[in-house]
Design a protein around this nucleic acid. Structure first.
Lengths: 227, 227
DNA sequence: TAGATTGTTAATCGATTAACAATC
DNA sequence: TAGATTGTTAATCGATTAACAATC
């Protein structure tokens, strides 16, 4: 029991991670002219249970109407506001290898309020060149404005990831999406999410192996020779 | 209390998701000539707590030595075996846009036992062309061998994702990594993991907004005009 | 033996789910 | 009013953590 002044409602991490999914479904519904949606329909489309969806939404407040459902536009706006996506966010991509280039060109960002505004690489061969309409700069050239909220995307080789992350944080970046499969050591005030493609594949390989119809047995080193 | 015959030990999902991280750290240690590592050191490098690490490893069996630590090679092997990574896995990438191309070229896969063996696209302009040393085929050309464990990677536009996933599953794929930001409707027997870049950015944006030093207040629509 | 570190227990914490009273 | 669906409760489930006995 705390009496902190008007403490911000605390939304569980698991809920925060699902809000963008709901938002995406809502916008698709809106595009198809749907005005109202029930928790059952929305949950189905998002791949969650309706009770879980309602619990998630209850953290935002009561924006549904009993017996009716949720107003698609209204709910979109509330989630957008809750996620803080009204403003637009700048993205800075570090590391202009294959992945970095692909991300620089990725269309999916713009449709969701993000614009790639900085491309960074330390290789002098690359700085000054143009990729996806932007000039590649080194860290000295990375000077975001004081009010520019920048999310850093690390697409460097693993060996340079920590150094690159430090440079971003030095220049005021507080949120990092890490594609380099290298755990980062950063202050707690910096939010980091990682996307490790090889790890994802390994997790899938584990499940794949488990569900393999009839795995051919490995030769048993202790088996008697019977033939 | 069950007496199912030699029931497979059940490893929690959260543990499975961390094993690849441990494996990666172990291999790095091995490369630096380290023979033995304590749970404390390994946990630090992996970014988890030592008690959690020990609990995770306890699901695999008892491979540590009290008072000493874990044998780096031994533990690597056990995790590799547990994850089913001894064999090698083929990867089939569907969708040869920017992202698909970047993934086809991605070096990180090979070092962890995966080889990109199939590139698939339905665009007749693309099929037959060569990318990263492989010929792009359409689904008719995707004929994995009966013993070839294939993990499908979806890098199509959202609108084609479901159809592409269905085609993969029809041809025996049981594991899918989904980059298309579109929830998939597939049989429970198919394992799906998704990587949604825009969703990751939105989650970061949420945290960023929360930790912003002094967010400039939005104009209050109900404010009295005072100037 | 003394020191170190594992493997496991039990407590805690957080997330999910079903069920249903509230209410449109 | 009758039917539908929300918002919330309480039960369950799974994951995390600290602590420590076991033991090298």
């Amino acid at each position: 029991m705390t009496n902190a002044p008007a403490a911000r409602r605390d939304i569980p991490d698991a809920t925060v991670a699902r809000l963008p999914v709901y938002l995406r479904v809502l916008r698709a519904l809106s595009g198809r002219g749907v005005d109202v949606v029930s928790s059952e329909e929305l949950a189905d489309a998002a791949g969650v249970r309706s009770s879980g969806l309602r619990k998630d939404l209850s953290y935002l407040g009561s924006y549904g109407v009993r017996g009716v459902g949720y107003d698609v536009e209204r709910l979109s706006e509330e989630i957008t506001r809750e996620l803080g996506l009204q403003g637009d966010f700048a993205v800075a991509i570090v590391g202009m290898g294959n992945l970095g280039r692909a991300l620089a060109d990725y269309r999916g960002f713009a449709t969701r309020g993000f614009s790639v505004r900085w491309l960074i690489d330390t290789d002098p061969e690359l700085t000054g060149s143009t990729i996806a309409g932007l000039t590649v700069v080194d860290f000295d050239g990375f000077r975001p404005g004081p009010d520019e909220a920048v999310i850093g995307v690390l697409a460097t080789p693993p060996a340079s990831a920590q150094e690159a992350a430090d440079s971003l944080v030095e220049r005021g970046v507080r949120s990092i999406l890490n594609f380099a499969s290298e755990p980062l050591d950063l202050p707690d005030s910096v939010a980091v999410r990682k996307v490790d493609l090889a790890t994802e594949l390994q997790i899938l390989a584990f499940h794949d192996q488990r569900t393999r119809p009839e795995p051919e047995p490995l030769p048993d080193p202790f088996a008697e020779v019977t033939s």
